[in-house]
Computed example of a mutant assay.
Amino acid sequence: MNPPPVHDPRLLAKPPICRLGCLVLVRNQRGDVLLVDPDYLDGMILPGGPGKANEPPHRAAARHLHAQTGIIARLTHVTALDYNPADRNLERLALVFDGGTVRDEHPVTVPPQHRSRLHGARFVPVRELPRHMAPSQAARVTEALAGRTLPILQHGQRPD
């Protein structure tokens, strides 16, 4: 039997402010990692972006991946979870989803920069990640590549 839902108005009166980053780790058949090059950062990052209010994180990640690269993926597992305490930005929680492997001939389609804020996207060999990414970003990807996964659940069930 499920416990009754909690209806304490104090829990919703002032929810904590935490940005949720929904990122996707996609590799090609050689094992290279897909990175995007945003015009607002120095260095490359995994495709993805913030979730919207009440948007399941795996759907936010899939939405951003498709918008940034043209790749459609069904995301079912998280490969890394990265918490960043508040500094000059709000506290952040980044979820890295396993986007699987795409065939080498699969096109990566980046929208024009004025719409996407991306200079481009490309697959980068794993050994070259530190040359293209900020140290914290490269460390996040390295952890995501370790092969550990957690299933995505929504209300205790695997979403469709």
Rank of each mutant, 00 (worst) to 15 (best):
H7E: 14
H7P: 07
H7R: 15
H7Q: 14
D8T: 11
D8M: 11
D8Q: 12
P9V: 08
P9A: 07
P9M: 06
P9H: 02
L11P: 10
L12A: 15
A13S: 13
K14V: 13
P15F: 10
I17E: 11
C18I: 15
C18H: 09
R19N: 15
R19C: 10
R19P: 02
R19L: 14
R19H: 14
L20M: 12
G21E: 10
G21A: 09
G21I: 04
G21V: 04
C22E: 05
C22R: 00
C22Q: 04
L23Q: 05
L23R: 02
L23E: 10
V24C: 08
L25F: 02
V26H: 00
V26I: 05
R27N: 01
N28T: 05
Q29R: 08
R30P: 04
G31W: 01
G31H: 02
G31N: 03
G31D: 03
D32R: 04
D32T: 05
V33H: 00
L34P: 00
L35E: 00
L35D: 00
V36Y: 00
V36T: 08
D37N: 11
D37W: 13
D37A: 13
D37G: 06
D37C: 10
P38L: 08
P38A: 04
D39R: 05
Y40H: 15
Y40K: 10
Y40C: 07
Y40R: 08
L41K: 13
L41D: 11
D42W: 08
D42Q: 14
D42I: 13
D42Y: 12
D42S: 15
G43A: 11
M44K: 03
I45Q: 12
I45Y: 03
L46M: 04
L46H: 02
L46K: 01
P47T: 01
P47I: 01
P47Q: 03
G48M: 05
G49W: 02
G49P: 02
G49Y: 01
P50Q: 10
P50T: 08
P50N: 09
G51D: 15
K52V: 12
K52W: 12
A53F: 14
A53V: 13
E55Y: 07
E55V: 13
E55G: 07
E55T: 11
E55P: 06
E55A: 06
E55W: 08
E55I: 10
P56H: 15
P56W: 12
P56D: 13
P57K: 06
H58K: 02
R59M: 15
A61F: 04
A61H: 10
A61G: 10
R63N: 13
R63Q: 13
H64R: 05
H64S: 07
L65R: 02
L65A: 05
H66L: 12
H66S: 09
H66T: 08
A67Y: 00
A67Q: 01
A67I: 00
Q68R: 04
T69S: 03
T69D: 06
T69R: 01
T69A: 02
I71D: 01
I71Y: 04
I71P: 03
I72A: 08
I72V: 09
A73F: 06
A73I: 06
A73M: 05
A73P: 10
R74S: 09
L75I: 07
T76A: 09
T76W: 05
V78E: 07
V78K: 02
V78Y: 01
T79Y: 00
T79R: 01
T79S: 12
T79W: 00
A80M: 05
A80R: 04
L81R: 13
Y83R: 09
Y83K: 09
N84G: 07
N84M: 10
N84C: 09
N84W: 06
